[in-house]
């Protein structure tokens, strides 16, 4: 397994997963919705944008602008996708979690 260039913060980790969950439709509104829904916590708008900025500057995500939309008052959506190094970082994080969880199933799987 290739070694990632960056380690992920907890929130960054969740944001990357949320982008992947949204698939083609990964722009800011559904990303925030998915994050809030699945992580069961309030996601401050500013925190999400800052995190996306940081992920992009680390090269873990890329973004593009969509067409201007009337529903947004003539502004565009910003769509995000996870880059290959983003995926690498996710896999590494997952592997680390899996490694560290080994042998603790009886404790961690309990409801």
């Amino acid at each position: 397994m290739p070694k990632p260039d960056h380690y992920l913060g907890e929130f960054e980790h969740l944001v990357l997963l949320a982008i992947l969950q949204c698939g083609e439709d990964a722009y800011t509104v559904p990303i925030r919705d998915v994050l809030a829904e699945r992580s069961r916590r309030r996601v401050a708008r500013g925190a999400l944008y800052t995190s996306l900025d940081r992920l992009q500057s680390k090269g873990l995500v890329t973004s593009r602008l969509g067409d201007p939309l009337a529903i947004r008052g003539g502004r565009s959506r910003r769509y995000f996708s996870v880059t290959p190094s983003g995926l690498t970082a996710l896999r590494a994080a997952r592997a680390a979690v899996a490694d560290l969880s080994e042998g603790l199933e009886s404790l961690l799987d309990r409801q």
Partner: peptide, 17 residues
Amino acid sequence: RRGWRDVTTGDLREEFQ
């Protein structure tokens, strides 16, 4: 102030609708 003007206003409009 944080460089996300269009996305923020756009998001809020969309969610407002």
